[in-house]
């Protein structure tokens, strides 16, 4: 028994050497270990007014001790000779810096491919060229060199001018392709941002599709004062149909002709009915304004009569009820008076 007492005594003496690490609080403190943050909702004692600095130091010390006590209990790891502690996720929420990311709207091709179930196949970076007898890049860097080696001579077709520069033609075609691609990129951006875009008739003769050309021809033909009624047509000519073709033809909406006698009759009757049934519209705002004006005029008339009756006590009739202030009489009084203070 003596030994036990001795050990306990020794431990007690050892403990006396050190200051305590436990802290007692009335109200529970809120600890956010993930953000190393502690909020202490306890009311201050009167001491804060006398020794502010020392009180703050002690108060903060106690709170930090509580925070440290909770952090030291978290699971630890050993990382390159250091003891690191795994912090939980912070619970005190802070606002974001930017909006939430939204997925990019699919391009027209992406949408089409998805509808049709077209899956993108990955091309090889280099392909074997039989003609040149070497590996040639499919696209990008050094592609043009292989192209140049391959097409060192170009044939001029019989049906065109023999003096045509085929190399220039090839270059132009490629540039056109790039331009077309750029336009569709712009269109995709506009579609994603929901901007109204003017419709493009067709890009050029060479890159436009048959459908584009047909639409252009139909619109051109109908762009007369009589909406193309007296325009001669070719033997097997087609007219473009589809969403929005009619809208593109100027004046097409105005001239909806009645098809037969009965329809025309009903249309005319409708017009006459409309005219006969017409009632005057009441513009409430205008009516209120008129009423107000009349009231005001009446009011302005009355005091003149009163004056006559009551005689004249003072020569100057009181116009202002309040004392006039400086700066209040300026025309277009919008600015506050006085020096501009910041």
């Amino acid at each position: 028994m003596d030994i036990v007492k001795e050990v306990l005594d020794k431990q007690a003496k050892e403990a006396e050497k050190y200051k305590p690490i436990n802290v007692v609080k009335h109200e529970e403190v809120k600890i956010d270990a993930g953000r190393l943050m502690i909020s202490d909702p306890n009311v201050f004692s009167e001491e804060i007014k006398e020794n502010t600095e020392s009180y703050l130091l002690n108060l903060t010390r106690d709170n930090v001790q509580l925070l440290v006590n909770s952090i030291w209990e978290l699971p630890t790891e050993r990382l390159d000779e250091h003891i690191v502690v795994k912090l939980p996720k912070p619970s005190f929420a802070l606002p974001r810096a930017r909006k939430l990311p939204v997925p990019r709207a699919p391009t027209k091709w992406e949408q089409f491919a998805k509808d049709k179930g077209i899956v993108k196949r990955k091309k090889d970076k280099k392909v074997w060229d039989e003609e040149l007898g070497k590996w040639v890049p499919t696209y990008g860097y050094q592609k043009y060199k292989a192209e140049r080696d391959k097409d060192w001579v170009l044939e001029v077709p019989k049906n065109i001018d023999p003096m045509t520069d085929m190399f220039q033609k090839k270059k132009d075609l490629k540039n056109e392709k790039i331009a077309k691609n750029e336009i569709s990129r712009m269109k995709n951006i506009a579609r994603a941002q929901k901007v109204d875009m003017p419709r493009v008739g067709f890009v050029s003769e060479e890159s436009a599709s048959a459908k584009d050309l047909l639409v252009a021809a139909t619109i051109a033909k109908a762009s007369t004062a009589s909406v193309g009624k007296f325009q001669a047509s070719l033997p097997k000519e087609k007219t473009a149909r589809g969403i929005g073709v009619r809208e593109l033809i100027p004046g097409s909406q105005k001239r909806k002709r009645a098809l037969n006698n009965a329809m025309e009759k009903s249309e005319q009757i409708e017009v006459v009915d409309k005219l006969l049934k017409k009632r005057p519209k009441i513009d409430v705002e205008k009516a209120v304004q008129i009423q107000k004006r009349e009231d005001r005029e009446e009011r302005e008339k009355k005091p003149v009569e009163k004056k006559k009756k009551g005689g004249s006590k003072s020569k100057h009739a009181k116009k202002f009820t309040k004392k006039p202030k400086s700066g209040m009489g300026r025309a277009g009084n919008k600015k506050p008076a006085g020096r501009k203070r910041r």
């Binding site: 250091h82 690191v84 502690v85």
Partner: peptide
Amino acid sequence: KSLLTDMFHVEDVETIRLQGI
């Protein structure tokens, strides 16, 4: 309180060295 926390806190981390606090 939220503003002061945002202003003075330093990057959220998963682990922290005990001697580094």
